[in-house]
Amino acid sequence: SKRIIIAIAIVLAFLHHDTWNWGNSDLVFGFMPVGLFYHACYSLAAAILWVFAIKFAWPKGLVDWAEGGDSNES
């Protein structure tokens, strides 16, 4: 699941380059340039990706280990 999350993140990073909208000045909803709309959707996609990351790739072992006893906290 961690590898799938990382793979999706890498795909998103490439999709972010968004070559097909580079010269497109169409407006979405009559006020938002298509390039801005695409990247705003991309922000939402990033948030959704991290929802899945937390659901399926949460570092439970590390966190339980850190939150367990035997801490050096002063």
Partner: peptide
């Protein structure tokens, strides 16, 4: 122009969150 959002904001959305995670 409009590229500012992709240049500085949406890329940060993915990468900042990745760094936090």
């Amino acid at each position: 122009g409009v590229g500012t959002y992709g240049l500085m904001a949406s890329s940060s959305g993915l990468i900042h969150a990745a760094c936090f995670f």
